[in-house]
Deep mutational scan, measured.
Amino acid sequence: MLEGKVKWSNSEKGFGFIEVEGQDDVFVHFSAIQGEGFKTLEEGQAVSFEIVEGNRGPQAANVTKEA
């Protein structure tokens, strides 16, 4: 699992980007967020995730919010 911080997200469009130190930003779709209820990410929020190869390149999977 990698750790990063949410660079920005748009809940209306359903995606955002995660900033990882020393690496390119990672695309995240809201379907990759683990948990119940409305899935949102806040700018600056710490997250853990895996990287998978998506249709348009690397993207985050199994995203969990850190406490």
Rank of each mutant, 00 (worst) to 15 (best):
G44P: 00
M1T: 12
E19F: 10
E43Q: 14
E50P: 01
K39L: 10
E12M: 13
G14N: 10
G4D: 02
A67F: 13
G44L: 02
G37I: 08
E42V: 13
L2Y: 13
A46S: 12
G14S: 10
S48F: 14
V6T: 01
P58C: 08
E50W: 13
G44Y: 04
R56C: 13
E50S: 11
E21P: 13
G22H: 03
E12N: 10
I51C: 06
E3Y: 15
T40R: 09
L2E: 04
E42R: 13
F30R: 04
E42N: 10
I51F: 03
A32C: 08
N55Y: 15
L2Q: 08
E12G: 10
E42G: 08
I33E: 04
W8R: 00
G22I: 03
W8G: 00
I33G: 04
Q23T: 07
E66W: 14
E36D: 12
T64P: 01
K5V: 14
F49C: 02
G54W: 07
G54H: 06
E19W: 10
V47H: 01
F30L: 04
Q34A: 11
K7E: 01
G16E: 00
S11G: 09
G57L: 03
E12K: 14
E50G: 05
G57S: 05
G35M: 08
H29G: 05
E43H: 12
E50H: 12
G44E: 02
G44W: 05
E66R: 15
F30Y: 10
F38N: 11
A60Q: 00
E19K: 13
G44K: 04
Q59D: 01
E21D: 11
Q45S: 08
I33Q: 03
G37P: 07
D24R: 14
V63I: 05
A60W: 01
Q59K: 08
F17G: 00
N10R: 05
K7A: 04
S31E: 04
F17M: 05
N10E: 02
G4A: 02
A46C: 14
E53C: 15
E3N: 15
A67P: 13
F27L: 04
E50Y: 14
V28T: 03
A46T: 13
G22N: 07
F27W: 06
A67R: 12
V63Y: 00
G57T: 03
F49Q: 01
Q23G: 10
G4P: 01
A67Y: 13
E3P: 08
I33S: 03
K39M: 11
A32T: 07
R56H: 10
Q45E: 13
S31Q: 05
